[in-house]
């Protein structure tokens, strides 16, 4: 994966496959120490302790088209290579939360990438899932919640092209601000 926005897209696909109806994505700058933290939390089917203990192993997957799963191991490796940490918690029937941090000034720290495109891609493919995206920096907090957008849209689907275009530009504006 070239950047963190692609990792976030990938990890969120796991949440979707686990049947999540609510997915919260947070990207947070932590000034002391110099870390960037991303987290993806869902209310999907979750995992039992046995699967959870093996899930960072690349030879574990729930998919049946191939017998290996690289998404979580790749994220863990990227975090640890940059001096950050990786943590996953999960409970059957409740959901899963993944938190990964990256040393921002570390030479192996991946760039954030196009987070607007990741959020728009998720909404395009899953207009009935609620996504909340939050970005916290020293300048402030920005958040976007598709539940609030759906209330404004009153039945117009979130994945109508014009709506997606608005969301993209809204996110890009916010990114320039904070």
């Amino acid at each position: 994966m070239e950047d963190l926005s692609l990792h976030i897209l990938d990890i969120s696909q796991n949440s979707l496959r686990a049947g999540a109806k609510n997915i919260f994505i947070v990207i947070r700058d932590l000034p002391e120490p110099d870390l960037l933290e991303i987290s993806v939390e869902d209310d999907g089917s979750g995992m039992d302790e046995e699967l959870l203990s093996r899930v960072t192993d690349p030879f574990v997957t729930t998919r049946d088209t191939r017998s290996i799963g690289l998404g979580i191991p790749l994220l863990k490796m990227a975090a640890e290579m940059s001096g950050g940490r990786f943590n996953i918690t999960s409970e059957t029937g409740k959901g899963t939360k993944i938190v990964a941090s990256f040393g921002r000034s570390h030479i192996d720290s991946p760039p954030l990438g196009d987070i607007a495109e990741t959020v728009v891609t998720l909404i395009q493919g899953n207009p009935d899932v609620r996504f909340r995206y939050e970005r916290c920096t020293e300048q402030g907090v920005f958040s976007l919640d598709t539940k609030e957008l759906a209330e404004i849209l009153q039945g117009v689907p979130l994945n109508e092209p014009e709506v997606l275009q608005w969301i993209r530009e809204y996110l890009e504006d916010a990114d320039a601000d904070i």
Binding site: M1, L6, L9, D10, G71, T121, Q124, L164
Partner: peptide, 23 residues
């Protein structure tokens, strides 16, 4: 296709281009 393999190979900009072009 939007799994780990697809995303790592560049599926996201492909999807964006298709949605944009169809629109």
């Amino acid at each position: 296709g939007m799994a780990t393999c697809g995303i790592a190979a560049g599926a996201r900009p492909v999807l964006t281009a298709i949605v944009d072009e169809v629109n």
